[in-house]
Design a protein around this nucleic acid. Structure first.
Lengths: 204, 204
DNA sequence: TTCGCCCTACCGTCCGGCAGGTAGGCACTG
DNA sequence: CAGTGCCTACCTGCCGGACGGTAGGGCGAA
């Protein structure tokens, strides 16, 4: 239930309570968004009083920033690992693996990534630099993958790399509005998606 | 500025103030979502006191319901008109026209449609039946169009009709997060998306 | 006179955040 | 060993303000 979701980039330097707070915040942010999620709800889910949250975080925005940052890093790591695992397979296979990893991060484990998609922008001020950086680094993964596909001429012509990337990420992230585990299979969905973007021989 | 955006389906039976309230509510909902948008903001934008809103609507949810319903009907009408205009052109051309109409409704005119996408679900209770019906009717337009494309074998194989529809609508609606009029051209974007979904000869 | 439209003033509730206090543990010192 | 001081972690209680919503009155037009 409260398994350490984003263990990848965390050197176990968490105080325990802090991670638990983020777990609960991620769950609430995923289902309710920024304004609907209150500190009282988070504190109640953790089992402490609201004021105690301020021993771990300076503000609500700091909690949300941590959740969103972890969410983006989590999906980034998952996709990067999938691409490494796909190794020198054909670009089409690598695309399929990346799509599956992104969808799995969104729906398979944890609430961090879907919370990161849902709140996208939050708080009063501009998006914190840490989050913007994490987001940019993740976008670059897809930019490189799409360039790879275009170089291998695996992708439908007549669509620019940037439009393709935005289409792809928009369609995948939109799945948080309609995906239900009992109605869809993530692997099949990834295959269908890859077939759409990179038509032709799947055994490449 | 305050041009009647959703004139299409409204037989001018509006009280004037009511339409103005909805215009302002749509603008605020578009940029801030449901919980961020307050009745005080709406009233101030209209130029009246907050309590006066209750002479036209019974609650905040009723205002939002009207905006979202109009937004869905507006994009529905726009896409249906585009398809009628495309007449007996090839399915690929009809798809392009529909995508262009949807994107134009989102970004070209009025705030109703983008507000409808942004708030998707709102309020405490379930989505009102009127909104769910309007949404379902609009979805059917795309279901029919995609069936048309599949029948003509214009669409990439290996992707089911339902997945294709969800991907396409998700990608288009996701554009509210990244579309900037000075960086993209709606017509070009529509062509690129259509090329992605229905690859091959564009002159069909 | 009636009615549509808008007003001022107020309600109870919940928000994020802050001040200040307390219980227990750990380390150091005489 | 006792005593002291500091630390983390949490608590109670409150603040100013914003929220959606309500009550009741004014006022011009028909």
């Amino acid at each position: 239930m409260s398994a350490p979701a984003a263990r990848t980039e965390r050197p176990a330097a968490e105080s325990g309570s802090r991670r638990l707070i983020l777990d609960m915040a991620a769950r609430l942010l995923r289902s309710g968004g920024y304004h609907q999620t209150t500190l009282r709800e988070i504190a109640e889910a953790v089992g402490i009083r609201k004021a105690s949250l301020y021993h771990h975080f300076a503000s609500k925005e700091e909690i949300v920033e941590a959740v969103v940052g972890d969410g983006v890093r989590f999906v980034h790591d998952a996709v990067a690992a999938a691409l490494t695992g796909a190794g020198q397979a054909g670009p089409r296979r690598r695309l399929e693996a990346a799509i599956a990893a992104h969808l799995c991060a969104l729906h398979g484990h944890g609430d961090y990534t879907s919370a990161a998609i849902k709140v996208f922008t939050f708080g009063s001020g501009p998006t914190p630099e840490s989050v913007r950086l994490a987001r940019r680094l993740y976008e670059d993964v897809w930019r490189r993958l799409i360039a790879e596909l275009q170089e291998a001429q695996e992708v439908a012509p007549g669509c620019s790399a940037e439009a393709l990337r935005l289409f792809l990420l928009g369609a995948m992230n939109g799945s948080i509005d309609w995906y239900r585990p009992e109605r869809f299979d993530l692997g099949a969905l990834a295959r269908e998606f890859a077939a759409l973007v990179a038509p032709g021989r799947p055994s490449d």
